[in-house]
Design a protein around this nucleic acid. Structure first.
Lengths: 414, 414
DNA sequence: GACTTTTTTTCGAGGCTCGCAATAAATAAT
DNA sequence: ATTATTTATTGCGAGCCTCGAAAAAAAGTC
C-alpha cells in the first residue's frame, strides 16, 4: 500500500524540487531557491552543480539588473533549452495542431492542418496524427535535443491513466489509445490528456496568483467541459478524466443532450442548445453543429434587442448557475475561468448565472465569486500540454541520474 | 510553496509508516512490515527497536499460531495500549456521547447523556460538553496514559481546518469553535470533525477491502450528509467540511429545504421531506422534526400497501439518484454506504434511485454500483473520531522524538 | 542431535543534508 | 585608489539514515 521513503529517493526528490523552483521562478538564484525550498544553501549548491554539469540547468548572469543591491550579485539559474524537447498534439473539431517545444518552454516549430474529424476514418485519423508528428520530428532544419515526451490533448473523455481517448464529441470514433499509438510509433513516452484539464494547467502557469490552489476552468463551446484544480492538484475522476460538469443534471427529464440523455447542463448551455433555443426549435431537436461565426452573430443579435436570442443566453446562464451551485455545494466556491467562443458572450450569460447561483448552497458568497473570460481555447490547451509534458520531463531526468541525456559521462563533481 | 525534504524528515516519516502498518495490520511481524513498507529489514528492525524502547510498540508472541511454518517464528508487534489515550465526543440531536479510547483502539470508558440541543443555550451547550469530558478524564477509577488528543464529531458544517462548528441542524447556534474551547479547557489538542466524514473514516477501517480508495458514505436521516473518500484521502471542501451533497440542486426552484433554499436533494429525501410528502403536506411546508420511530412506522406503512407513503420514498429515491448521478458525472461511480434511519428503508428507495441514476452520465455503469446499508450512524461516527484521533497521535509521537510521552530518557539504542 | 528454514539483529559502507567557515564578487566609504 | 562592508556561493567535516551481507536466534525435520 503505502511505500516507505528510501535513502536514494531523497536526492531525487530534492533535485525535482530544484527543477520545479527554476521552472516556476524563471531565473532564480541559488539563494532564492534555498528560500523557497527550505533546503540549505549547501544542498542547493551541490544539486545545482550536478544539474549544470549534466547540462540541464545553465548559469545566466542577470545582465539587466545591474546595480540594485550591495553584495556579490546573484547568479541566475535557468533551464537549458537544449536539455530536451517535447511535442504537443492538439486535436479539436476539424483541426489538428502540433508544436515542438524546447526544455525552457519556447515553441521551436509548429504545424497545423484542417481535417474533417466528424467523418474521418479511424485509420486516417491515426495516420494523420502520426504523420504530422513525424514531419515535425524529422524536419532537417531543426536541431532538436532529444524529444523526451509527447502530450496530446483532445476534447472529450480520456481514461484516468491518460492513455486513451474514450469518447469525443468531435468524432464518432471511440476508444482510441493514442498514447500507446504514439509511443509505439516514435518510441517516446506519450500521454493523452483531456482538453479542459490542460486549460486548467495552463492557467496555473499563466496566472499563478489567481489560479493557484483551487479554481475551475469551464469550456463554453459546442460542449461544456471543465477542468478542476483542488489543493493545487488537477482533479480527475477515478476511472476517466472526470469533471463532466456539462453532464450534471440540471432538469431531470429535460432537454435532449448530445450525449443522448436528458436535462444535462450542456443541453441548455452548449452552443447547439443556445442555438436550438434561440431559433425556436424544440428541446427534443437533435443537436447540430453551429459555427463560431454563427454563434458570434447570435450573440450580437441578443445584445441588440430583447428576444428569443437573449432568452436563450439567459437560460444557458441559469443552467450553468445551478450546475456551479451544485458543484460549489461539494467543493466550496473558487475562481472560475470561462473559456471558449461563448465566453465572449459571457455578458449575456452572467446575470442569470449569478441569479441562479445565489439560490444554491454555494451561493452564500456569490458576490465574491469572480469570473474571467478567455475566448480562445486552443492556445491554452497547447500551453497546458506543453507544461504537462515538461514537468514530466523534470521528473524523469532526475530519476536514476542516467538515461536523461546530456553528455555527462562521469558523475563526479569537479 | 513546496518544501524540500530534509534529512531528519526521513526517519520521522518512516517511523510513521511503521506505526501505520502496525495499526492497520493488527499484529504484524517485522518481516511483514518490511514487505508492506518496502523498507529493508534492517531499517524496520532499528525503528521498531526504538519504538519498543519508547513504550509505543510491544512484542507479542503469537500464542495461537503454534506450528505452521518451519523456521524461526515471527514475533508480532502490537500497539502498546498504555502508550496514550484519546477522547471522542459525539454531539447529535438531543444526545451527547463521550468515550475514552486507549492507544490500541479499545474503549476504556464512556458516558452518554440526553440534552435538548434545539433549545439549549450556547453557554449550557459548551458547559455540558466540557463537563462530560472532564468527568471522564478525572475519573479516579481510571488509570489513563496521557490523553493525547480529543476528536469531536457533529452533524453539520465545520470549517476546513477542523476547528469550529459553523452551522448545524441540531441547534440554532452557529460558529462555535469547539476545538479551541476544548484545547483551552484541557490543554489537549482537539479537532472538530464533520459526522459524515467520520463515518467514511470508520468504514475505511472497518472494511478496507470494500472501502479503500474511492467510496461515498451518505447519511439518510433528518438531513442528508455525505462523506467522500477519493484516492484514499478524505475529501473536504476548500473552506468548509465540504461535501454538502444534500444541498446539491435537484429541481431548481422546487421544494423548500431546511436550509431555506429550494430544490435541494434534502428537500426531497430528508426525513422531514419524506414525511411531508407522505402526509400530503405542501412542498412549501416548514420542515419539522420526525422521530426515528415515526419514520420506521412510515416505512412499514409504505411496505404494506401502495399509497402516498410509498410514493414519498420513491420521490426520495429519485432525488438521491439524480444527485448521485450528478456527483458521478464529476468523480466517477464508487461504492456507496447508506447510513442512518432511512437506510433501513433503502428497499423502498433503491428502485427509483437506480432508475434515476441510469438516466444520468454516471449511470453508464449503474448496474455495477453497489449499495450497503447501516441503520445506526452513532457507532460509526465515534469509531471514525477515534481512528482520526489515533492516527493524529501516530504522527505526533514520532515527530521530534520527545514530548510524546513514554519513560524513554536516553535515546541510545542498547 | 545435526540439519534446514525462516526471522531478526549486527556491522560496516555509502549517501545525503546541515552548519560553519572560507572564498568570491560586487558596492560604499575613506 | 584602496579598504571596508555586504551578500552569494562553495568546501569541509559531522551526524544521520538506509542498505546489503553476514551472523545469530529460534523454531521444525530427519
Amino acid at each position: 500500500m503505502s511505500v516507505g521513503i528510501r535513502h536514494d529517493d531523497l536526492r531525487r526528490r530534492n533535485r525535482a524540487m530544484v527543477l520545479s523552483a527554476v521552472r516556476r521562478a524563471g531565473q532564480p538564484s541559488r539563494t532564492e531557491i534555498a528560500a523557497t525550498t527550505g533546503l540549505s544553501h549547501s544542498t542547493i549548491s551541490a544539486i545545482s552543480a550536478d544539474l549544470i554539469q549534466e547540462g540541464i540547468l545553465m548559469e545566466r548572469r542577470k545582465g539587466e539588473t545591474a546595480s540594485l543591491k550591495r553584495g556579490r550579485p546573484q547568479i541566475g539559474l535557468a533551464l537549458n533549452p537544449e536539455a530536451a524537447a517535447v511535442v504537443t498534439v492538439v486535436l479539436s473539431l476539424n483541426f489538428l495542431s502540433v508544436a515542438v517545444i524546447d526544455y525552457a518552454g519556447q515553441i521551436v516549430a509548429e504545424e497545423q492542418l484542417r481535417l474533417d474529424t466528424l467523418t474521418v476514418s479511424r485509420e486516417k485519423l491515426i495516420g494523420e496524427c502520426t504523420a504530422i508528428v513525424r514531419r515535425r520530428l524529422e524536419d532537417p532544419d531543426l536541431d532538436l535535443g532529444s524529444v523526451a515526451r509527447i502530450a496530446m490533448g483532445i476534447q472529450g473523455i480520456t481514461d484516468s491513466h491518460a492513455r486513451a481517448m474514450l469518447w469525443s464529441p468531435i468524432t464518432p470514433l471511440t476508444d482510441i489509445p493514442f498514447a500507446d499509438i504514439l509511443e509505439a510509433e516514435f518510441g517516446i513516452p506519450a500521454t493523452m490528456e483531456n482538453d479542459c484539464n490542460m486549460m486548467a494547467v495552463a492557467l496555473q502557469w499563466r496566472d499563478p496568483d489567481r489560479y493557484r490552489d483551487d479554481f475551475i476552468a469551464i469550456l463554453l463551446s459546442h460542449g461544456i467541459g471543465m477542468g478542476l484544480v483542488l489543493k493545487g492538484e488537477l482533479f480527475t475522476g477515478t476511472h476517466s478524466s472526470g469533471g463532466e460538469f456539462g453532464h450534471m443534471i440540471h432538469r431531470p427529464g429535460g432537454a435532449l443532450c448530445r450525449c443522448g440523455r436528458r436535462g444535462c447542463v450542456e443541453a441548455y448551455a452548449g452552443n447547439y442548445a443556445i442555438w436550438r433555443s434561440a431559433t425556436g426549435m424544440s428541446e427534443d431537436a437533435e443537436p447540430v453543429d453551429v459555427s463560431d461565426a454563427d454563434m458570434r452573430a447570435l450573440a450580437a443579435k441578443a445584445r441588440e434587442h430583447d428576444g428569443p436570442e437573449r432568452e436563450a443566453y439567459r437560460r444557458a446562464g441559469e443552467a450553468l448557475g445551478f450546475g456551479l451551485g451544485s458543484l460549489f455545494a461539494l467543493i466550496d466556491p473558487a475562481p472560475v475561468a470561462m473559456v471558449g467562443v461563448s465566453a465572449a458572450a459571457f455578458d449575456l450569460i452572467e446575470p442569470a448565472l449569478r441569479e441562479a447561483i445565489a439560490q444554491t448552497a454555494g451561493g452564500q458568497h456569490s458576490k465574491s465569486i469572480s469570473f474571467d473570460t478567455e475566448p480562445n481555447e486552443l492556445p491554452l490547451i497547447r500551453e497546458g500540454c506543453a507544461m504537462r509534458a515538461l514537468t514530466f520531463v523534470d521528473q524523469e531526468i532526475f530519476a536514476p541520474g542516467a538515461q536523461a541525456k546530456a553528455g555527462a559521462s562521469g558523475k563526479n563533481v569537479a
